[in-house]
Design a protein around this nucleic acid. Sequence first.
DNA 1: GAAAGTTTCCAAAGCGCTTTGGCTGACAAT
DNA 2: ATTGTCAGCCAAAGCGCTTTGGAAACTTTC
Lengths: 340, 340
Amino acid sequence: MNLKQLALMLDLSQTTVSRALNGYPEVSEETRRRVADAAKRHGYRPNPSARRLATGKAGMIGYVMPAGGSVDIDPHFVEFLSGLGDYARAHELDLVLSPAEAGDEETTYRRVVANKQVDALYISAPRHADGRIVLAQQLGIPYIVHGRSEGLDFEYPFLDIDNEAAFHSATRLLLQLGHKRIALINGDETQTFAIFRERGVQRALAARELALPPSLVRSVAMTEENGYRATRSLLEQGEAPTAIVCSSLIMALGVVRAVRDLGLTIPRDLSLVAHDDVFPWLKPESFPVPLSTTRSSIRAAGQRIAERLAARISGLETGARGEIWPVDLVVRGSIGGARA
Amino acid sequence: MNLKQLALMLDLSQTTVSRALNGYPEVSEETRRRVADAAKRHGYRPNPSARRLATGKAGMIGYVMPAGGSVDIDPHFVEFLSGLGDYARAHELDLVLSPAEAGDEETTYRRVVANKQVDALYISAPRHADGRIVLAQQLGIPYIVHGRSEGLDFEYPFLDIDNEAAFHSATRLLLQLGHKRIALINGDETQTFAIFRERGVQRALAARELALPPSLVRSVAMTEENGYRATRSLLEQGEAPTAIVCSSLIMALGVVRAVRDLGLTIPRDLSLVAHDDVFPWLKPESFPVPLSTTRSSIRAAGQRIAERLAARISGLETGARGEIWPVDLVVRGSIGGARA
DNA sequence: GAAAGTTTCCAAAGCGCTTTGGCTGACAAT
DNA sequence: ATTGTCAGCCAAAGCGCTTTGGAAACTTTC
């Protein structure tokens, strides 16, 4: 069932039917109703390829996904997807994933935009002065950055959590408990979120005139193994920290294992706070000692981003609006007073 | 730059240019070369919307993704995506995710197919007599099932790992070590893979004339917390098992925690084997006691599925070919002889 | 009651590609 | 010299939608 048939059946022109269906004003209310009825009754659905060819709109949002032998997709991505799906489901919005050689995403970005395959782009895990943002801006396609990038000479739309404040408050809490040597096990330091987190820790320390020496910072890919190694190396050095702030629950698993291997106890010998992105399959409450966390649901962010992307596509949202979400600090048993 | 302009510039008809580019025979070699050159030089790329409208081919593969407030996307999906990306990247194949109300995927399947949005479908996590497979079959769109479904009265193309053999050999190994009460912590029992795994355990036990009583089986969503609970309830009952076979590394985390909470030790008091889907961020070697596993990379499966899907789209693969991958049994420290 | 607006609808021209159904000219066969 | 064949090319018709540029019919205005 296509437009032509439907028009014929209603004894109207394609023009009128199309307009009636798309809410244009030059159609009488009665005709509009007739058309809408018939469309529903016959299950008419405009062919998206044809519509796309005619309008240039795709009805999809795009994500250029880094891929290649050595590239692992972030497990957080699934949570983002769940959130995006929650929103998109109700709005018949699809997401197209275009795999690109990691490092050369540009080609794929250009292809996707030139081909009008998508109406808007989702950009995640931005780095400093991220070229993808510059590109999207310059290609003039709607987009939203999940996270932030610094060093760009223009404003851009984004949604981020307040990583700096989160890690600041976690660190401050540890300081209040008397800790002085606080270590940070961070994610990949080329990622902006990691920079912000380190900054948060530093600021809290600075307020007490303390510093964050490089010997107390580790920046690594967020795996259990890396959490373990980082912790071993931190605790086995001369001036071992009495508290650790950790960028992910997955790494925190490794931290806990290392602490145990060293015959130490949380929170007696070491206090631990980790950032929790809210996975359904791993909860801070289910750590041997319930984990204190800075918490922010990636899934919720996914919902919101889908919503904003949809708004940008339909022109309801414009300009460089940035949204920064506060992060909860949830105190559980994994922190305690520093030992004298 | 579109076909028309390119044709004009070459002083050829659109027909010839189109044919030259698409490898049709009725074009002289020389013309073909001229056309190919010019296309490359001017960076001509056929507009996919137009092509799709004309051919009905989309150049994309689809995945109808269950979504909704209470639905969590499987963390394994990321690994699958990484694999798919590895292949698709080199072939300019995109993946479109269409979120659907969990439980009513049918509407979305129909929409996606009717709209010719995708050329092939990926179907994952099949259940018994899965309706999605029936639907895809009946809609006549190429597809591949990741896993297997029983109770269907037709053959279908799939890729699965040999879950039954994997769990059979794991169980047999435990039996050889002298274990008699072996428990199974399984995934959601409506999933076919879970059924196969249970069957594998049962078969191994049956060979020794042992049974798998319901009291030694748990079927739960694969979270750490559920692994913990299942283990507690298994070990705290009268006839506690001396070995556990577990369907996922994530649940195994919970198993380990529960064992420790009960003051027991692996492998002295309990032997443990888990299935490892090969996550980059959680490895069986990094368990307190290195975990014995049945191992099969979901990522590799993703690559292969992308490849087969591409083959099916281009007509190189047809029919109901099923592929069953063997699973490695990797022995590490988490198993030991049963206590007398 | 004619002029000027309004409302409601339509025919037809794209959007950029593929594909059908020729046409042309060169060469071989008769 | 005539016919047949075939390689190589083309014009034009879709694919199913949106949108431009009218054109009737119907109101309102003076």
